[in-house]
């Protein structure tokens, strides 16, 4: 393929990765939770879109409108159920990793039990079509998914910049104690943030349902990719997640084209190790708590 083609495919992929990672980095920023189950929820979202399409005939873009609110509520419920108990724990960060690890195992097992390990993907008519623009082609599915990601990310950005709750979320990310001091109910903000993070996971799942194949255990590879790119961008930084996603997606597209598709994920992990070695806090991040 020519360079321009690879670049375009990489950029489209980066848009989707950015959305996939946004919820993860938001949760880390607000409450220092590394949600290892994030990609498992993305897979759940993908199954949601799959069954909405197969059983109800709903286009993924319609299903998006149902899945996001459902995931928002699910996220808030989950936060209330799991996190208040460990809030005061001296090893909170590590506890959250282990707990969400357990959660990921539960989700993976349930999905595999009910839906088997079969590879699936949603097949709307545009999934196999492409726009031809002179020397390059732009797959419609990827283009739509990427544009939707950009719209959702801009919505998130506007929400964080312009609403009272958005200000409270950013305040909590920047300084938890200060947020408490000015009267932010940080537990409520954490709950809402978890809901938002989960809604973003649901949205990402809906979009990847027709651009990737998925199966229950797929989330391990995805979570590792997402973690790699948010470590590169700086954990807790939304800007970092977007930059990390785009940079690494483009890089992996070139690796995939020049070396082979099976090696593409290696790009992310190599970038992770280099980041940890050279600049552990990432491009836009603050020093990660010890």
């Amino acid at each position: 393929m020519n360079e321009l083609q690879v670049l375009i495919l990489g950029l489209l992929l980066g848009g989707v990765y950015a959305l996939m990672a946004s919820g993860l980095t938001l949760l880390f920023g607000v409450m220092r939770v590394v949600n290892l189950a994030h990609a498992a929820f993305i897979v759940v979202g993908a199954y949601g879109a799959y069954f909405a399409f197969e059983l109800l005939g709903l286009d993924p873009f319609v299903a998006l409108g149902l899945i996001m609110p459902a995931f928002f509520l699910l996220g808030m419920g989950l936060y209330r159920l799991l996190f208040p108990r460990i809030e005061g724990s001296p090893r909170f960060g590590e506890m959250t990793v282990l707990m969400t690890f357990g959660l990921a195992l539960i989700i993976e097992g349930l999905l595999a039990f009910y839906f088997t390990g079969i590879f699936r993907s949603v097949d709307p008519p545009y999934a196999t079509q492409a726009f031809i623009l002179g020397p390059v082609f732009v797959p419609r599915a990827q283009l739509y998914a990427s544009l939707t990601s950009v719209v959702l990310l801009m919505g998130l950005w506007a929400f964080l910049r312009m609403t009272r709750t958005g200000y409270a979320i950013r305040a909590t990310m920047q300084n938890r104690v200060a947020a408490q001091v000015v009267g932010v109910n940080v537990r409520r903000i954490s709950t809402v943030s978890f809901g938002i993070g989960m809604a973003l996971a649901g949205a990402a799942g809906t979009l990847v349902s027709f651009i990737f194949t998925f199966f229950p255990a797929r989330h391990w590879q995805w979570i590792a990719i997402l973690l790699a790119l948010i470590v590169l961008g700086g954990m807790g930084s939304l800007k970092g997640a977007v930059v990390g996603a785009v940079v690494l997606a483009v890089a992996s597209s070139f690796v995939s084209d020049r070396i082979g598709p099976t090696w593409a994920p290696m790009t992310f992990f190599a970038a992770l190790f280099v980041t940890l070695m050279v600049r552990p806090r990432g491009l836009f991040g603050k020093e990660i708590d010890r």
Partner: peptide, 11 residues
């Protein structure tokens, strides 16, 4: 007003 002043550094 806490000891570290507790401002929002990026605002």
């Amino acid at each position: 007003v806490p000891q570290d002043r507790s401002l929002f550094p990026e605002m």
